Each structure stands twice: as C-alpha cells, then as structure tokens.
Amino acid sequence: MTDSINISLSSDEIEIIVDALEADLEGYVEAAKEARGNNNREDVTTFTEAATRIQTLMSKLQDLVED
C-alpha cells in the first residue's frame, strides 16, 4: 500500500468525490459485465478488483460525512 496523505475536505467536497466515484464504479461494473459476456476472465478480474477498490474508498468517505 502507498503512504497515507492527510488533507482537509468539507462535507460537500467529500460528497462531490463520492458522486464522481459512483460514476466511475458504474463504468467498471459495466465493463466487468461485458468482459464476462465476452468470456474474458482476465478483464473480469481486473474490472471487478477496480470496482471493489472504488467501493471500499467510497464507503470510507461516506463514513466520514455521516459522522
């Protein structure tokens, strides 16, 4: 894992980032579905991993806003 970076963000800024991540997540989910349909297991793995990492980050950010 990479080094941690500390930055200050407002709740609104975090919500903007979460919205952008949601759009990105949707793209990876769709790409994984396409890859699955094309029987391309390597791409399915890659896109699924990316979607999982985005979901994890989104959850962390949403937890910060909900506190």
Results as ranks from 00 to 15, higher is better:
Leu64Gly: 03
Thr45Gly: 06
Arg36Ser: 14
Ile16Met: 12
Val29Trp: 03
Gln62Tyr: 00
Val44His: 06
Lys33Thr: 08
Asp24Thr: 07
Gln62Glu: 09
Asn40Gly: 02
Lys60Cys: 10
Glu15Arg: 14
Gln55Ala: 10
Glu13Thr: 04
Ile7Glu: 06
Asp24Cys: 01
Ser10Lys: 01
Ile7Arg: 03
Lys60Trp: 02
Ile17Tyr: 09
Ala50Phe: 05
Asn40Leu: 09
Ala50Asp: 05
Asp63Ala: 01
Lys33Met: 10
Gly37Arg: 05
Glu13Lys: 05
Asn6Cys: 08
Glu13Asp: 13
Ala31Tyr: 02
Gln62Ser: 08
Arg53Ser: 14
Leu57Tyr: 04
Gly37Cys: 04
Ile14Met: 08
Gly37Lys: 13
Ile5Met: 14
Arg53Ile: 12
Arg36His: 10
Glu26Lys: 13
Lys33Leu: 11
Ala35Trp: 10
Thr52Arg: 07
Asn38Phe: 01
Ser4Asn: 11
Thr48Val: 05
Thr46Tyr: 08
Glu26Ala: 13
Thr52Ile: 11
Ala35Phe: 12
Glu15Phe: 01
Ala32Cys: 01
Glu49Gly: 10
Glu42Asn: 12
Ile16Gln: 11
Glu26Gln: 15
Thr48Trp: 04
Ser10Asn: 04
Ser11Arg: 14
Tyr28Val: 04
Arg53Lys: 11
Val65Phe: 10
Gly37Thr: 04
Asp19Pro: 01
Tyr28Thr: 05
Ala31Phe: 04
Gln55Gly: 11
Arg53Asp: 09
Arg53Trp: 12
Ile5Pro: 00
Glu26Pro: 03
Asn39Leu: 08
Gln55Phe: 05
Thr46Cys: 06
Asp67Gly: 06
Leu9Met: 13
Thr48His: 08
Thr45Pro: 01
Asn39Tyr: 12
Met1Ala: 07
Leu25Val: 11
Glu30Cys: 15
Ile5Thr: 10
Ile5Tyr: 14
Ala50Leu: 15
Val29Cys: 03
Ile7Thr: 10
Glu22Ala: 15
Ala32Asn: 02
Ser11Tyr: 05
Asp63Gly: 15
Phe47Gln: 03
Arg53Thr: 12
Ala31Ile: 09
Ala35Val: 13
Val18Ser: 01
Asn6Gly: 11
Ala20Leu: 13
